[in-house]
Nucleic acid binder design. Structure first.
Lengths: 336, 336
DNA sequence: TATATTTATGAAAACGCTTATGAAAACCAA
DNA sequence: TTGGTTTTCATAAGCGTTTTCATAAATATA
């Protein structure tokens, strides 16, 4: 039988209200009384029941996190940022994998709301009407991380994917390339998929390079798809001299496909990846990549959420974190 | 104001007990009544409050997971296994990073118990007396994953680290090597650190190869330490012809150190890693590695925990999952 | 000293649900 | 019909806190 606040009250010779005050650090308790209560707590090994507390106070100090796949290098880094800040603000995290399946996402939102989370962090790709519907019809504050809804209805933390892709492509242009291939993400992924593709197109256009459909492939963000799409590129009668991949794993696949065919990176073909996951340092040549600050996105999103949960004032509800390109050996120095 | 079970009861013209029965699938409800209640729930958009339910039923359908670092490839894979099975059994996961710091681990155990989790999954390295004390002094069932306490007091799911390291070393011996180096883990890590080292030593001994202290280095499981320790090996006047690393990241560091010095893997030096994380396929040459089934360890541990939470009978509380070596290009075919 | 304030404490009512307990209703056999 | 079962449901007592409200004690003010 676990010891309750009532047991402590009796042991200390006070009322449970007083024990509650002591436990919650309410200053209106005489020092002597506080000491007595603390002693009783110690003696009995009292451990407050957070569920009961949650029912009474309507706060659970728990936030729900819906994430596509925690085993992904990208999202696990993000999750770490989330959790660190959550801990800092005394929140715990209920972590759920959605696999980006809408039905599951909606169901998870519901489950987490049932569990009375104080806030919700949603990571994913596409935010559809149903998501918006589910997330705005509740009073529980929600922040999107590493994604955004099209109309910026919900608070979100991400980077400017369009500009990031533009910059990466431009860097390739600046190195004199005319035939720049892209391994894009799925088109139903509005940011990492579509936006990065748009940035690539715009950069080519601004450089006066005509778009060649042959040089555009769609991958699924996994290594394998980088490998296979690049093999196809290499089989072209006029293959690319540079490749921009929508994420690092595919970029590394590209490098290996190039190397496997006897060509050299960056000598024959230069490669730029995206996200700058830890992997980029563990490959030869090390991968030049657009830095997407995953940890920071998670951390900032969580911080933002705490503000909403505390009813603090928030100046800007859509935050775009800065990106930059980290140059490594998969690209050559810029020629000018 | 959220709608409560009471509102539903009024709307449906029944008592709240009946609503509760319907919500919880209690069969003792007339079909017609059930339909009325369901309709009322639908009409009002009722969403049961899991906190209140938890208080009344003393079950939260939530389990706590203490993990060293979710951003690690190794642990995030494990976490995925845990979460998948948890979902399957209708549990949610509260995920906490411990960074292997004992103080934090103990504090997390306490926090999770306050939150009234139905079970606890502990992942880490060393299980000390304090851990045992904290974990056994509660009635909340606990399972260790990817680790074990020395006396097998607590239920656990892991592999036979000694044997795994023995097998890896033996594989190198079978390839004719006499100078086999090991990049071990920290000695205060009893399994992945110490046990794997012991397995290595035993295999050498059984092969009649004398232990050479020069060929033993201690790393921290990160890529960098594989790189630096291997550089030191290569600087030896009599360098190793094979390297066994206690995990894959260090093994990949070793490969790159070897390649950077102009030597060839496996031509000049063969390398075996441990764990078989997804990375091993994303490196050239692809890394031969001892398969530790991370996902399965997580999944089995969670499954085991569900049994304890349901008071089911458990035959064996210490489960050792099988391991094997996956041969890739960082080792040569066995010569016989 | 008497009065007004402030500070400390306790009693008791929520919080939203589950779960005995037991009564009424429905069913059954004889 | 009658009595005995079985179903179906309502009443109400928790579950362990927080939090109002009231009051008592302590302190300050006049």
């Amino acid at each position: 039988m676990p010891v309750t606040i009532y047991d402590v009250a009796r042991e200390a010779g006070v009322s449970m209200a007083t024990v509650s005050r002591v436990v919650n650090g309410n200053p209106n308790v005489k020092p002597l009384t506080r000491k007595k209560v603390l002693a009783a707590i110690e003696r009995l090994g009292y451990r407050p029941n957070a569920v009961a507390r949650g029912l009474a106070s309507k706060k659970t100090t728990t936030v729900g996190v819906i994430i596509p796949d925690i085993s992904s290098l990208f999202f696990s880094e993000l999750a770490r940022g989330i959790e660190d800040i959550a801990t800092m603000y005394k929140y715990n995290i209920i972590l759920c994998n959605s696999d980006q399946r809408m039905e599951k996402e909606l169901q998870l939102i519901n489950t987490l709301l049932e569990k009375q989370v104080d806030g919700l962090l949603f990571l994913g790709a596409e935010i559809k009407e149903d998501h918006l519907q589910a997330l705005t019809s509740t009073s529980v504050p929600t922040v999107l991380a590493a994604t955004r809804d099209a109309d910026n209805v919900l608070p979100s933390v991400s980077i400017d994917h369009f500009q990031a892709a533009y910059d990466a492509t431009e860097a390739l242009v600046a190195r004199g390339h005319k035939r720049i291939a892209m391994i894009a993400g799925p088109a139903n992924d509005p940011l990492a998929g579509l936006m990065r593709y748009e940035g690539y197109k715009k950069a080519l256009k601004d450089a006066g390079i005509e778009l060649d459909e042959e040089l555009i492939a769609t991958g699924n963000y996994f290594y394998e798809s980088g490998l296979s799409t690049t093999k196809a590129f290499l089989a072209l009668k006029n293959p690319p001299t540079a490749i921009f991949a929508a994420n690092d794993e595919m970029a590394i696949g590209a490098i290996h496909a190039i190397q496997d065919s006897g060509l050299n990176v960056p000598g024959d073909i230069e490669v730029i990846g995206h996200d700058n996951i830890r992997l980029v340092e563990m490959v030869r040549p090390r991968l030049t990549s657009v830095v997407q600050p995953m940890y920071d996105i998670g951390a900032v999103a969580m911080r933002l959420l705490t503000k909403y949960m505390n009813n603090e004032n928030v100046e800007e509800h859509v935050v775009l974190l800065p990106h930059r390109i980290e140059y490594r050996e998969s690209t050559k120095p810029e020629q000018n």
